[in-house]
Design a binder for these strands. Structure first.
Lengths: 133, 133
DNA sequence: GAGATCCTACTACATCTGTCGGAGGATGTC
DNA sequence: GACATCCTCCGACAGATGTAGTAGGATCTC
């Protein structure tokens, strides 16, 4: 009934990730990357994943010499944002605060990241955004 | 073959969330909360969700007077952490940094949250954690 | 040009998840 | 005590997703 969109499954996301990490690739290349990261799947499985990703609008393909080359259509950030939004909504009714606190409290950061974080926070502080919608 | 554990579906998470938000409840109460938030599902659907949540270890139940009362077994933070970890792994090979930056850049925060964030960041800065494992 | 390879298109199937309906027991109401 | 209610237990079914086999065309290799 509802426009339930499962969006991306884990395996699909895994395939998409190889495109982000290594750039456009054929089925065989994606397969190879997946194998490199310890994921053992069949060639046709990867093919199915890429086909479905294309149907869902996450990648595009171009017929080149030998085989179709798949290319990510949405950026990693774009997908990240969407997933985060879903998560925030599901867990905290849309309030991102608690989630960020969680992350900062439980994850590890490099000094560079910490510095960047500080910069971001400071900017947040000074620049009050207008409420959304 | 692998211990693929889908964990929680959206509907299941929604039911669990009512327990976090409103405390222990019977099937009918959860149903009522879901209805309140605009989710129209059947009584037996909720029952199924709670049963599955119990099988998966997310909630426990106690037979009281009239009906079973379900109670969240894992905290919201616990589940949040787990989901975030998965997300971070799937999108960034485990590096939480980029995800936090995303969140901070795209979400809205209350002044209080910003203040709390600043506190957290400062603490991060001063207290270099030892590398995990 | 015959066999080995590689690619695409289909098809298939199991599991997980979302959603319910029906049977049958327990309790409340006249 | 007959009916309406409410609860639990089972079973079912559709769609999404993970995984892969097969058929058949195209290409490479001797």
């Amino acid at each position: 009934m509802a426009e339930r969109q499962y969006d991306l499954g884990d395996a699909e996301l895994g395939a998409l990730k190889t495109l982000w990490d290594h750039g456009p690739a054929t089925v065989r290349e994606v397969l190879s990357h997946l194998h490199d990261s310890g994921r053992r799947v069949a060639y046709t499985t990867v093919q199915t994943l890429l086909t479905r990703l294309e149907q869902k609008g996450y990648v595009t393909s171009n017929k080149s010499e030998l085989a179709y080359v798949y290319r990510a259509k949405l950026t990693r950030d774009r997908v990240t944002r969407s997933r985060l939004k879903t998560l925030v909504k599901q867990l905290y009714d849309g309030a991102a605060g608690p989630l960020v606190m969680q992350l900062i409290r439980t994850e590890q950061f490099t000094p560079d990241e910490i510095e960047e974080l500080q910069g971001l926070i400071e900017r947040l502080d000074g620049e009050p955004k207008q409420p959304k919608r």
